[in-house]
Design a protein around this nucleic acid. Structure first.
Lengths: 151, 151
DNA sequence: TTATATTAGTTGCATAACTAACTATATGTC
DNA sequence: GACATATAGTTAGTTATGCAACTAATATAA
């Protein structure tokens, strides 16, 4: 049921968290200096492709909490910048598999380094127990609301 | 320093929370049935005006974590729907004070009722202690990141 | 096997976001 | 008073979001 899909605009920061936003912002600054202009939204797509290359657009949409229209345009822009390419699936020709290009691949390492560094700074004085509580509360609030069809 | 202002797209759901989103969504559905089409973003502005009518655009922007350009357009749209009106300040003619119209005012009560109801459902099984921990963790993560100029 | 429904993706439309450049009013200093 | 600076708001440009309507390919059912 496609209406069951979460919408990005709403869950965005909750799911990804302040720290992730800071990561994205630091990345953005860093790469802009190197002449690469990538938006925070585009980072979220690349991030999932680094974890698993060759995902379908729909799967990318699910993992980044976007609808398929938004995903289409994000990939359009990433393709224009030659960071990503679409390859029609041979098993099912409705499906576009999205692959990282040779330009995007080497960005992974520096990205991960910056991300780790930022997360460490963000969570400096936060204990494991506290993080667990926050995650748990989020999950329960989320469950409470989805049970009522409110998210 | 105007660069010190938080950006909405980033802090949006963190600050307002999943529950607020759910409130807004429920409101949206409810009022759409009554022929009033108000976006979630517009709700956030109305919400602050119900708390304190006649705020300047800049103050509204601060309270809803938007920059002034975004605030301008949101108020443009609210004005088109005659939910809000701009009144130039007499003390300082650079300033627009934003007031609720007679159309918007009566929406407050039903809005607050729906909001309370939704919050209660969202936080059903969450204890006061847990909420305090979540708030506290957010504040500290936020502090950690702003100290490094990352938010 | 043909008709029907479902699925993946695209496109059009309106709203919204942020940056940067701009206008107009106010303030501060000499 | 005159000039520089700061402040409130608007406008232009680009990207992103969600909804709805659409195309094309696949799956299901008669």
């Amino acid at each position: 049921m496609s209406n069951n899909q979460f919408k990005r605009g709403e869950l965005y920061s909750v799911v990804n968290g302040m720290a992730t936003t800071a990561v994205a912002r630091r990345l953005q600054k860093n790469f802009r200096n190197a002449g690469l202009d990538i938006t925070i939204e585009q980072w979220s797509v690349l991030y999932h492709l680094w974890k698993e290359d060759g995902l379908s657009q729909l799967e990318l949409g699910n993992r980044t909490f976007r609808d398929k229209a938004s995903t289409t345009r994000l990939i359009d822009n990433l393709e224009k910048q030659e960071l990503v390419m679409r390859v029609a699936s041979k098993e099912d020709r409705r499906i576009n598999l999205v692959y990282l290009t040779d330009i995007a691949k080497p960005l992974q390492q520096i990205t991960y380094e910056l991300a780790n560094q930022t997360m460490n700074e963000a969570l400096l004085d936060i204990s494991k127990e506290e993080i667990d509580i926050v995650k748990n509360v989020f999950q329960r609030v989320y469950d409470n609301l989805t049970n009522k069809d409110l998210l």
